[in-house]
Design a protein around this nucleic acid. Sequence first.
DNA 1: AAGGCGGGGGG
DNA 2: CCCCCAGCCTT
Length: 362
Amino acid sequence: MTMLAIVHAMPTREKAASAESTRFDGLSDALLDWYSAHARDLPWRIGPAQRAKGIPADPYRVWLAEIMLQQTTVPHAARYFEAFTRRWPTVVDLADAADADVMAAWAGLGYYARARNLLKCAREVVERGDWPRTETGLRELPGIGAYTAGAVAALAFNQRAPAVDGNVDRVFARLLAAKGEWKAEKAVIASLVRDLVPADRPAEFAEALMDLGATICTPKRPNCLICPVRSWCAAQAEGEPERYPIKPARKAKPLRRGDVYVVLRSGDVMTQTRPQNGLLGGMLGLPTSDWLEDGTPEKPDWLPDSARPIGEVRHVFTHFELQLSVFRLTSGTVPGNPGWTPVDDAEKALPSVFRKALKLAF
DNA sequence: AAGGCGGGGGG
DNA sequence: CCCCCAGCCTT
C-alpha cells in the first residue's frame, strides 16, 4: 500500500491533524531542549532537575497557581500565592477556611468569582477524597475550564493534555501566521497543540510553551533571534511576527459616575458585604450610590445636604470605567444596621476601587 | 455566541 | 495614552 493510500484511508480530521503535525516535526524536541536550559523558576513549579529525579508536583499548589494566573500576570499572582500557601498549606486547610477570610485574602487580585469557586472546588475535592487526575475529571470542578483542566492534568499528573493559554495562542498564531477569524483560529490551535503534546513529557511541554510565550515570543517585540522554534515560524518568515495574533477590536468602555461614602466611627469604617453575584460579588465593600452612565445618582436620605466630596477616585473595570466622588462622614447620622470594620482590616480586605476611596479619606 | 467579570504593568 | 495578560461562567 502506498503512503498516499494510507493517508487517503484516514478520517478527515486525523488527516488534517497529521498534516499539521508533520509540518511541525522536530518542534517539540527543540522546544524541550531549550526548556531544559531556560525554564523559569516559579514558586508553584518543580524544576526540570527535580522532575527528572521523579519528584512529583503538588496538585494543590499547581491548581491554586493556575486559578490565580487566569488573566493575571505572574508577579501579581506570585505575591498572593505565597500568602495563600503560607496560610493554607493544603487543600484541606483551604476547604476549612472561613469564606470571609478567603475573600479578604483574594482582595486586590480581581475576578472575585475565582475566589468563590476556589472555595467550592477545594471543598468538593476534600469531599470526594482526592483530585481527579484526568482532564475531563478536572473539567467538572468549579472554576476549572478548558485551559486549567489541561494545565493541571499535564503539570500535576503528567497526563497527555494540552495547556493552551494566551501565551500558547500567541505562539501558534505566529507559527501558523494565522490570518483567519480569531475565534476559528483558536479552535485550530487547540486541536493542533493537543496533537503535538509528546507522550513522555507533557508537563515540560506545557511549561516550555508558556515560557517561550512569556520570555521570547512576547506580545511586543518578540526576540526571534534567539527563538528555538524560529525555523518553524511562518510569521517570522513573513518578517512581521508582531502582527500576530490578529484579534477583533475591543469595544470602548463607557464612563459611569457615582458617590462612595467613607463613614468613620472611632477607628472603624462602615462596610457591607456585597451580594454574591455580580460586580465584586462576595467582597467587602463601602456604601455607594448607584453608578450611572447618564444623569446624577440619587443621594441617600441620611446624607446631610451640607456634605461635600473630598475628592474623586477613578477605576477601570472590565467593561466600564468608574468615577466616584468620595464623601467623608462621621457617625451619628447613619440609620439602619451597617457593618463596621477596623480601618486597618478594611484596607486589606477591600477590593482596589474601595481601597482608593478609603485612602483618600486619610 | 456574546457579554460580564479586576487589576496592574509595559511600551 | 494604549495594550494585554497562565479564562470561566452565565445567558
